[in-house]
Design a protein around this nucleic acid. Structure first.
Length: 361
DNA sequence: GAAACGTGGCA
DNA sequence: TTGCCAAGTTT
């Protein structure tokens, strides 16, 4: 029991800090409102947590607003078309999240609501160890421990864990679980993440302003900024390919929905060659229809998680009766419905005189 | 366990 | 310009 109390000291200090310093976020219930009995909306917490996976708060905010405006509850989202959700997600990245989001919404609707424990949440598509703990603690006040990048950083510093990630992950998780209080586990989880985002930052941590500095072994040793250590990542290879942008005489553009799995799975894009690292000169063309293709000067560059991409863009204007081998002509087209790499290709093509008349900038 | 999976901001 | 980093999950 004495150990329990001792362990809870950092948690209590953190919660005191959170009560006065909690960030205001569109999906969050303030600590004061939470204390008054306001329960967060599981739909909004779930949606925000999925959007926030490997993604900054700044990048998420507009998407969260558009999603909740268009689909105010999980039943509305469950009834949406796949293509509508993919288009609304376009630009946010990690598109498996959008596919799993919709699958999850449909399962939850079938179940009649979100499960109220971590294990059942964990069984849903797109919900892993982190997200299940986040929803269970924040929404349902379960004593579950969230372990995200923030928590890994905070805990590795508190206990001066010098072993590099990802090998140290089990140790960090165990330490984080010890810290988690039985009271206010949801506010505690959010406080840990706020602390990591605003005070215990990756670079130049603000230890002078940290409510936990008195408990922090890395601070005491003067090594906070160097933690957590991480195993170096492999260098990114370069892949190359050709993208084809066909403009029909009536203004329609040739697009295809990519296969439902893998890179950019289920998103809209321009037809093209494969993106290969073992390219030969010149790259064998693979146009989606027979036409006079004009190679644009310059390259479209884009970097994914594990490779750099350099694309040549070929454009053509085709007759209204043109029959593509792949994809379909879209009379209505918005660049915002494209993932970023495809939007870059569009920007490149639209700047060419052949297209510029149709799409004044 | 390792690799695949996006994007934008920052030093 | 380049590499690191952000509220991870799936296979």
């Amino acid at each position: 029991m004495r150990d329990e109390i001792a362990r809870s000291e950092p948690a209590l200090a953190l919660l005191r800090w959170y009560d006065s310093a909690a960030r205001v976020l569109p999906w969050r219930v303030s600590p004061a409102d939470r204390a008054a009995g306001v329960r967060p909306d599981p739909y909004r917490i779930w949606l925000s947590e999925v959007m926030l996976q490997q993604t900054t708060v700044a990048a998420v905010k507009d998407y969260f607003h558009r999603f909740t405006t268009r689909w105010p509850d999980v039943q509305a989202l469950a009834a949406a078309e796949d293509a509508e959700v993919m288009a609304e997600w376009a630009g946010l990245g990690y598109y498996a999240r959008a596919r799993n989001l919709l699958a999850c919404a449909r399962q939850v609707t079938e179940l009649g609501g979100f499960p109220d424990d971590a294990k059942a949440l964990r069984a849903l598509p797109g919900i892993g160890p982190y997200t299940s703990a986040a929803i269970a603690s924040i929404v349902w006040e379960r004593q579950e421990t969230v372990v995200d990048g923030n928590v890994e950083r905070v805990v590795s510093r508190l206990f001066a864990v010098t072993e590099p990630l990802p090998k140290s992950k089990p140790k960090l998780t165990a330490l984080a679980e010890i810290l988690t209080p039985a009271q206010r586990p949801g506010d505690y989880a959010q406080a840990m993440m706020d602390l990591g985002a605003t005070i215990c930052t990756p670079r130049n941590p603000k230890c002078d302003a940290c409510p936990l500095s008195g408990f922090c072994q890395a601070y005491a040793q003067g090594i906070a900024a160097s933690l957590p250590a991480k195993t170096p990542k492999a260098a990114k290879p370069v892949r190359r390919g050709i993208a084809y942008v066909a403009l029909r005489e009536d203004g329609a553009l040739l697009l295809e929905t990519r296969p439902p799995r893998g890179l950019l799975g289920g998103t809209l894009g321009w037809p093209g060659t494969e993106w290969r690292a073992d390219w030969t000169e010149p790259l064998p063309p693979a146009p989606p229809l027979a036409a006079e293709w004009q190679d644009l000067t310059g390259l479209v560059r884009h970097t994914f998680t594990h490779f750099h991409l350099e694309l040549t863009v070929a454009i053509s204007r085709v007759a209204v009766d043109a029959q593509p081998k792949t994809g379909a002509f879209h009379p209505e087209f918005s660049p915002s419905a494209l993932p970023t790499v495809m939007r870059k290709i569009w920007e490149h093509a639209a700047s060419d005189p052949l297209f510029a008349a149709h799409f004044p900038r």
